[in-house]
Simulated scan of single mutants.
Amino acid sequence: MTAPGAHHSGPASAAAWFERAERLAAEFAATAVARDKAGGTAKAERDRLRDSGLLNLIIPAEYGGHGFDWHDTLRIVRIISRADSAMGHLFGFQHLLLATVRLFGEQWPHYYRETARNGWFWGNTLNPLDTRARILPDGPDWLIHGSKSFCSGAMDSDHLIVSALTEAGKLVIAAVPSDRPGIHIHADWDNMGQRQTDSGSVDFHEVRVYDREILRSPGPLGSVFASLRPLIAQLVLTNIYLGIGEGALAEARAYTQSQSRPWFLSSAPSATKDPYVLQKYGEFWVELNATALATDYAARLLDAAWRQENALTAAERAEAAVACATAKVLATRAGLDVTQRLFEVTGARATSAQAGLDRFWRNLRTHSLHDPVDYKLLDLGEWALNGQAPTPSFYS
């Protein structure tokens, strides 16, 4: 007997999985504006993701998953993000956290099998910039005490990736059940964007962590292969941003075609023939398509690096890192431009709360501030001018 949400089989082809993702995205889009206003936990939508089988895409078939590569998994992150970037965020982080287990801990086969068997949804409390949580030895095990912020998807999760510091300041990462005694997940996320990502705070009160739950071999960024984790994180975010931009363009297009009127000084018979409107749509198209090409190229390099496993070289890692940083900059710039300027092609009435077109900018602006692209450009400048590869960290 399988647990609710567990899926050992599914569509026979990748195309069928994409069709399933498109149907789910359309379902999410129908309620996205109302749920954005409401905030809180999207419990029904999270359960739809559980039931869809999509949470197991990146898990190889021999462990009960569907054996997708990163390129196709990230394309589905983008599809969901077009409709609802909060759900795209949670879905993308599921695969980032599974990658974290794979890259940092030798016990990953166990977690892959159990995730596929039990339909686990993973939540994030790995925030290395938040150093308030401490982990101390307690006999053969460990205890975590402290707090974490920006814990996306922790609410309604089944398992958490947790980070804490030892007394000596060493970063330790573990995988623990979300219902472990002493874990208190707070519904205190109330930001202007990404309002249903549950990216609030989590408190740990003497939470027991068994030694077998510590991801110590090779540990955080403990090898060249393990240092792919930040590149996966960057591409998850890049595809969320690109999805937001593409979703904004699609909704703006539908609004312009159905409701926008030409300005009274325009000689165009309709808004869809106004030369200024057409020019802006052309600009949006170029920005987003250039970003998509760069993003898919970076995903191909990531897949090539992923297949190398421990044979991965620093030079191959550097090539992928530069491609990921490039795509991230493009996605941020293009997404912010399209989501801000879409009102210039839809008109004053498109600012109504009912239309909800402002959510695209709010979502992207909120998300993009957590990893400033100025520092990506510094890395890219060092590469372009001095041939210096980005230094592996949790953000590069």
Rank of each mutant, 00 (worst) to 15 (best):
M1Y: 05
T2L: 13
G5I: 11
H7W: 09
H7M: 13
H8K: 10
P11N: 04
S13G: 08
A15E: 15
A16W: 08
W17T: 00
R20F: 12
R20N: 14
E22Y: 01
R23S: 11
A26H: 07
A34Y: 06
G39I: 06
K43V: 04
K43P: 00
L49Y: 15
L49C: 12
G53Y: 14
L57E: 09
P60W: 09
E62W: 09
G64K: 08
H66R: 11
F68Q: 02
D72P: 02
T73D: 12
T73A: 15
I76W: 10
V77T: 15
I80V: 15
S81M: 04
S81Q: 07
S81W: 00
Q94S: 12
L97P: 05
V101M: 15
G105F: 15
Q107I: 03
Y111T: 05
Y112A: 14
Y112G: 07
R117A: 12
G119I: 03
W120N: 04
P128I: 12
D130W: 00
D130L: 02
A133D: 03
D138C: 06
G139C: 13
W142A: 05
L143D: 08
I144M: 03
S152Q: 09
S152T: 04
A154L: 07
A154K: 08
D158F: 02
D158V: 00
H159S: 04
I161V: 15
S163H: 09
L165D: 14
A175V: 15
A175P: 04
A175M: 09
V176C: 09
P181I: 03
I183H: 04
H184P: 01
N191I: 04
M192L: 13
S199T: 00
V202S: 10
H205A: 09
R208H: 12
V209E: 09
E213V: 05
P218I: 07
G219W: 15
P220R: 05
G222E: 01
N239R: 02
N239E: 13
I240K: 00
I244H: 03
G247I: 06
G247W: 11
A248D: 13
L249N: 00
A252H: 02
R253W: 04
A254C: 01
T256V: 04
S258A: 14
S258D: 00
S260K: 06
P262Q: 01
S266Y: 06
A271H: 05
L278G: 06
F284N: 01
V286S: 10
V286F: 12
A292R: 15
A294R: 07
L302E: 08
A305M: 06
R307A: 09
L312N: 01
A318F: 08
A325D: 01
A325E: 09
Q340L: 11
R341P: 02
R341E: 12
V345R: 00
T346E: 03
S352Y: 04
Q354C: 03
R359N: 02
F360L: 10
W361F: 13
L364H: 00
R365C: 11
S368H: 06
P372V: 01
V373S: 13
K376C: 14
L377M: 15
D379P: 08
L380K: 10
A384C: 01
N386D: 13
N386Y: 10
P392H: 03
S393C: 10
